[in-house]
Nucleic acid binder design. Structure first.
Lengths: 224, 224
DNA sequence: CGACCATTTGATATGGATCAAGCGATGTGG
DNA sequence: CCACATCGCTTGATCCATATCAAATGGTCG
């Protein structure tokens, strides 16, 4: 009705191996799983599938999304290197996940972690922290979706920058369509809005996926 | 820019299930706090305040919300009798909370619960379940906000019905403005949409806060 | 009864969607 | 290595759903 990509469907996935631990968490979870490559646009898991694994982006980027009956797609989040995704509080995945670009993803058996969390309160706390991050993401997303197109795009750019240590140059791994489906806009509106921001001097767009944040002030002023 | 109230400032269901020893959770949390009355529109807690308590609606209704710099208000959730709110994964409240109507709210010291959760894995699980519910709420809200006005209103009515055991008659405790700020629409659009749904025979509106769902089919067809 | 507040309804404006090209970059087959 | 097909992005023209502005109606309470 409004925007979004029309999806038809495709699929392919399959996780991998494990090993036993005694280690704590953080970077050490690396030792509990193995790294798998996913080509661009390949599905990592599907909505409603049992959540048997937990994932950490090693390189590339991942999107989670849902598709409405009529084909409208909404992207829930983008996950960048270092981000963990696929942790579901219920037993099933609430969203599907796909590689935005060719990516490497560390795959960890959920059971191993949950067992560990039972013994180690530190790990339990980490799981809680991750759930908290997901909740905040979703809540922030709601706040984003009530704003104007300029505010959404500006907010998106600032978020991407913040996730890249606040760098003033951002390399976007995702297409305009992905951005549009994340922001609840059409690809045309995203494109036009970027052009406006560029014309107003708030940003520069040396190449379509490379954005320079020229004026934080202008951007955050747009950010209500 | 789009909708929302400009702010300047200032029944009874029961969950179920528990297990094991001691005073567990569920209905028993009643024993861990006291019931306080809140008049309509009175604040229960404010955004960014430390989350020292957890709350359960005994009667009436509660809304949580955020206000953007320019005054636009977004309601995050409505809580009805039996619902628990105010559980924050971080230490601070992400939203403010107010009584939608005169309400009675059970107030529980957070510390007491967290301590209990440390001893009783059943309680820890309950906390996890509540966090899960919050996450799902926020995710569903995102999906709602990308829909058309008719879809949002129809979805809202069905949600309210579902929370009232699927009853086909719904008594709305909140104003049109609250509904608008929850759905990301204006009060006028909410009103007009209700009129359309009524004219199409999907609902009846015997009084402004009393809605009869006449045709589930029609409503869910609108619900993408 | 009168004042106020919530809701509905009407008229008009507008931001973003939709429909439609055009354009540069990338990749493929010849 | 080129020619052409494809893809991702931008730009233009127009449409439409919802916002905005304005007024009337209805309900509630002192």
């Amino acid at each position: 009705m409004l925007s979004q990509t029309m999806i038809t469907r495709n699929a392919t996935r399959q996780p991998a191996e494990r090993r036993a631990p005694a280690v704590s968490f953080g970077d050490s979870i690396e030792m509990m799983g193995s790294v798998m490559p996913f080509a661009r646009n390949v599905e990592i898991y599907g909505e409603n599938e049992p959540a048997e694994y937990l994932y950490k982006v090693v390189s590339g980027a991942v999107r989670t999304y849902k598709v409405l009956n009529d084909g409208r797609r909404q992207i829930g989040s983008f996950y960048l290197p270092g981000d963990i995704f696929g942790l579901e509080v219920g037993g099933k995945h609430a969203f599907s996940a796909e590689a935005v670009a060719d990516s490497k993803v560390l795959v960890i058996k959920r059971g191993a972690l949950v067992a560990l969390a039972g013994r180690d309160t530190g790990v339990a706390g980490q799981l809680w922290t991750m759930a908290a991050a997901e909740l905040r993401r979703a809540q922030d997303h709601v706040m984003l979706l009530i704003k104007t197109a300029q505010e959404r795009v500006a907010g998106f750019l600032m978020e991407m920058s913040a996730r890249n240590s606040g760098a003033s140059e951002v390399e976007l791994p995702m297409s305009r369509q992905d951005i549009a489906d994340y922001l609840g806009l059409t690809i045309e509106t995203v494109s036009r809005t970027l052009t406006q921001l560029e014309n107003s001097g708030a940003i520069a767009v040396p190449s379509s996926r490379h954005i320079v944040l020229r004026s934080r002030g202008a951007l955050s002023r747009l950010n209500a």
